[in-house]
Structure formats: C-alpha cells, structure tokens
Design a protein around this nucleic acid. Structure first.
Lengths: 334, 334
DNA sequence: CTGGATTGTCGAAGCGCTTCGATTAAGGGC
DNA sequence: GCCCTTAATCGAAGCGCTTCGACAATCCAG
C-alpha cells in the first residue's frame, strides 16, 4: 500500500504545490486557501504520508516528545505508577506529543543526555520524594518540567499531587461524622517515613490535624506489610486502645491483612470497627467488606501534569502547586 | 556551565579537526588515531557536547528509539507491567537506545504514526493476548518487533514469555513430590479465559497435563477477585472435594483472600492444605504464611525482549519463540 | 483608477548530523 | 629510490523538514 517512505516533497509534487505549502497546511502556521488545503490533505492521505520526526525536530527545534522519569527504586508503590504512566501518555498524545520513558537508575547522566540531545522538550518526574536527588539536577538543567509529588524545597518548581493532607483529614472527618471518638491511622512501613516520602507524611499530618480539630483521640502508626507484622500491629493497637472504633489505612499491601486480623479478633467491620482506606478503587472493591476509600486519582494527576507541562512549553504561566481534591467513596466498611 | 547548545562543529573547531572526524570518533565507524581521538573526546567533555538526536536520526536513518506498546485495557494484570517497562528501559539503555511509551488506546493509527514517522526503529508489545488486534497491524507494518506473550498465530513473529505451561506443571510436580494426591488450580477470573489471554490458559493446560502425568485427581477453576466470591469458590471447592490437600493459585489479587478463607474454615497451611502461588515475590513474601511460589520473571522477560529486538535491528536471526524457565521458590506454605 | 494592504504561495536557506569519496602522508616490497 | 598500499583525515553532499522573506494576485479605500 504505502510506499517505503514518503517525503514532503512527494506530497508537494502530487498536490502540485510547493513543499513549504504542504508544511503550512500541516502546521497551520500560515493561512492557506481552503482549496489548496484540501488538495494537499488528499495527497497526504493518498500517499500515506507521515512527517519524519527527526527532520521535524531538527528544523523546528521541538521534538514534540516529553520525558516521563520513573522513580529510583521502581519496587515501591508500584501499581499506581502504571496508571500515571498510562494517563500521561494518553494526555500527551492529546497535545500531539509522545512520551519517552526514562529511569532514574541511569543516574543524572541519563536526564542530562535526554535533555542535552534535545530528545525531549520537557520532563514529568513521577513519585518525587522529599529529598529527591533528581530535583537539584532539574534546577541545573532548567528544562520545562512538572513533578508528581512534592520535594522538601519546591520553590520555583511546578508540582502536582493528590492533596494527601486533605485526604487524611477527609477520612477523619468521615469517621467523626459517623460518631467515632477514638481512631488510628495505619500508614506506610516505617522505612517510607524515614526516607521522607511526602505522601506518607502529609497524610499523617492531615490525620493529626483533623483529630485535634474534631476533638478525637487517636494515634498514627507506621505499618509493615507482611501478614505476621500487620497482625501484631493491629493486635497491639486494639489491646492498647480498647475504645478504638475507627481505622484509617493508608497502605494498600497491608489493608487485606488488617481486615483479616480484625475478623480473627472478632471485631466486625463496620459494626465494631469502621475502616477507611486510601488506596486504588480495585483494592477497595475486592476487599471483604468493600472498603470506604479515598482514591489516589492517578488518571487525573497524570492528565494535570501534562496540561501544566504543555502550558510551560508554550510559555504560559502556571501555578507552582496543584493539589487535587480527594474524593471519598462510601462503601460497606464504615 | 555548558553553553546553550553545543554542536559538532564547535567540538570540531575546539579540537582542531573536521566535523566528520568528530563523528567518526563518536561512532567508531572509521579508524581514528589514538591521539586525535583523545583530543576530540577531551573537547566533547570540555564543551559538554551531546549529539542532537533529531539530526542524528535524520542523517543516519536510525532513531535509536524503540517503542514499548502498552496493552489495551491497562487495568488488567497491572503490577507486573511496570516491572516489564522498567526492565525494558534499562535493557534498551544498555544498547544505547531509548524507549517511547505508546498505548494501544490510540488505536492502529498510533502505531502507524510512530513507525511511519521513523520515531522508532522497532517495537516491543506488552501483554499480547491470543487474539490481539495489534498483531495483524504488526504484520502489515513489517517493523522489527518482539511480543511479550503469545498470540494465537505466532508464525513469523518473535515472542517471549514465561513458560506458563511449565509453571503450571512445576507447581503440580512440587505438590506431587510432597505427597499430595488431590489438587486444584484457582486461576484468573472467568472473563480472562474468555478473552483468550494466553498466560491464563497455558497455566491451566500445564496444570491439567501434569495432574494426568502424575496420576493426581484435580480440577482447574477460574477465580474471581472480590473477597466474598473468593470465599464462596473456596468453600464450594473444599466441600465438593473433601480429600483436597493441594492448591495452586494463579491470581495475585485473590491469593490473600484464599488464605484467609482457608483459615476461617480451620484448614491450616501447609499442614492441612498446601498452597503454591504463581505471583510476584513481594506478594508471596507478605502473605501469611509466606507462599511457595513461581515468579513471573518480569525483569528477565523485558531484558530478553530487548536483546531479541536488538538482534533483529542488527539483522541477526532470532528464534521465534523464547520461553523462560519457571523457578519455584519454596517458602512456608507447602 | 491607483496605490497600499492583504492574501496565498513559492523558493531557498538552514537545522546538526552521517557518510561517501577524495586527499594526503606514511609505510613497505622490490 | 619508486610505486603501490594502507592509515588517517577532510570536505561536501545530503537526510526531510520548517521558516523567512519575496512575490504575485487580489482587494478596497480614496
């Protein structure tokens, strides 16, 4: 069907116009008469023309590609990353851009190379931590960029994330509304807090602020993910706080273990203990019972990140911080 | 530090050589004296030179980029995809290639565009199903490619995957060795079999072949993922087959629910029922008790896919099918 | 009518790189 | 010592596209 490789010159000849006219039809950067435009587009279709990406990038100094930079230890916090990635690609395609996948494993050289070689026009960094080593590099490169997550010093950077503090508050507010007076947060494993991962800390801060505000009693505890450890944590928690009737779980790997332990201890959910989780919807829906939850809106975060980056690439001003509102879905656990 | 954008001409001037000499030093395609080479490389470093990717692609007709094509409904089978992606990127970088992320959501046009515009030199398709719509397109495009997973008709295509049939057999063999005589496979949700997803079916076939071979009694059942449904399935299974003492679970979302149900029914693992899972190591390790498991070696599959693609790009012959041997890790559940 | 805008199209000059001869300088056989 | 290799480097011609200035044709105010 289509010839081996069709160039703009062949399209121009086929349509009986100059090469530059074809280019202007395709880019819309100059006015071309409707008649000519139609003929050109017909030729494009007839020949199966696709502009050569390299040539275009070279001439226009725009690759129309953005980089999506994976976090360092890809092992962590994994399932949601794929959703980010997927939505970033979809959103970018909506702006006629492609997405290059980069890992931070390659070190600073990798980013420097991608930017220096003009492979990409901008960067989206996923899962940024409080003291992320990619951040100083980013400042040095001065390439348009958007971070998913907040570093310790976010001055001058464009960051997007779910408002985890609000999510923590939202969960507590929900439990307070339901009449619970003593609650607890089971969060990420201790090592995650130590590493300074923003989302874990911010949820805890939101949780603590909200229990103060609502006049509840409560604690925030880290929570490991192995069954035996979860079991021990939950046992100790309930033993230490017999009056506890509300639980916020921000740990999707542990949440099923938490539920099982409650059942083992004879605590019914939601009659004896109400549970609210911060986790993806599929985990919440599959749990027994299905969990009232706040979702990390990966889809929306990715889309927003791309939108912001496109604004920056086009020289528009963007807000430094974009925090997405948590939405709580009530299911059977509260 | 580094100037705005350094070109090869500036490097050449700085080193006192011709532009082409710099190019040959960098590509190694012609012999350059050790002395000149050193001077050129010094200049490259001093100026912070990065070859412009677009120009290079245009002149050499090689983008040094491969496409990684996500499956259609990214929702399915998700966590492992990120591991694939990550290992594909790492492997590709080892061959001095970058990775462009494409979704199948964009439809055939997306692939056609990426290939037609010479954005990419080759394709890796993730999570290929038996009747994957991307496959006919791939044949039409005739672009070097490697599939992760096997379509119904894989003639002429290069495919890589874990040998799921062998994995199913391996699990049964392990249970047979431990003296179990009646076993069952709890697999993917019914809809996955109906869609014709290769890995689910092949595991079941391996399982069925192996129980025949070892003279065991057994059934293979699909398994939904919601807690209540898993519970019902396990209850019915145990009621129908009181002599059952071995379970193979090929469903990482359901496996914790299966374990809880066994506990509820008073069946101890491994004393009363042995469980072997096909799932990522982290899920197996976090379970209670930690599960004997066969891992989907995502890391290795990704690396292998890239190696094969590079061979094809360099015109080397490659085997059509590459099946990776399953490795079984014995933990506390068998 | 005429002259200055406006509209639509063309041609050519790059963008930064690779690659193909061509060229020069040594090296070696006789 | 001469001629033919071989080794090392150079120069120039593109690769396919965008973009700028120029130009012809059309328009409309005066």
């Amino acid at each position: 069907m289509t010839k081996r490789t069709v160039t703009i010159a062949e399209v121009a000849k086929h349509a009986g116009v100059a090469v530059s006219t074809v280019s202007y039809v395709l880019s819309g950067k100059r006015v071309i008469s409707a008649d000519t435009r139609r003929r050109v587009l017909d030729s494009v279709r007839a020949l199966g023309y696709h502009p050569n990406a390299g040539a275009r990038a070279l001439a226009s100094r725009r690759a129309n590609v953005i980089a999506l930079v994976l976090p360092l230890r890809a092992g962590m916090h994994v399932p949601v990353l794929m959703q980010f990635a997927s939505s970033v690609v979809t959103a970018a395609r909506g702006f006629d851009h492609d997405v290059l996948l980069l890992t931070a494993d390659e070190g600073p050289g990798g980013l420097r190379r991608a930017v220096g070689s003009a492979l990409v026009d901008g960067l989206v960094l996923m899962d940024v931590e409080l003291n992320d080593p990619r951040v100083p590099l980013l400042r040095e490169l001065a390439e348009p960029s958007v971070l998913i997550g907040f570093p310790a010093d976010s001055a001058g950077l464009t960051c997007v994330d779910l408002d985890f503090a609000a999510a923590g508050r939202r969960c507590v507010a929900h439990l307070a509304e339901r009449g619970h007076r003593e609650v607890a947060l089971l969060g990420a494993p201790a090592v995650v807090y130590e590493r300074g991962t923003g989302f874990a800390r911010r949820t805890r801060e939101g949780f603590e602020a909200a229990i103060a505000e609502h006049g509840l009693r409560g604690v925030a505890l880290p929570c490991e993910e192995a069954f035996a450890q979860v079991q021990a944590t939950v046992r100790e928690l309930l033993a230490a706080r017999p009056g506890l009737t509300g639980l916020v779980v921000h740990n999707e790997a542990a949440v099923n273990h938490v539920l099982e332990t409650l059942r083992q201890l004879g605590r019914r959910v939601p009659e004896d203990v109400a549970v609210v989780a911060i986790c993806p919807d599929d985990v919440a829906e599959r749990a027994g019972p299905p969990l009232t939850s706040v979702l990390v809106p990966a889809e929306e975060v990715g889309r927003e990140a791309v939108r912001l980056l496109m604004d920056k690439l086009d020289g528009r001003a963007v807000p430094e911080a974009t925090l997405l509102e948590p939405r709580l879905t009530v299911r059977a656990s509260s």
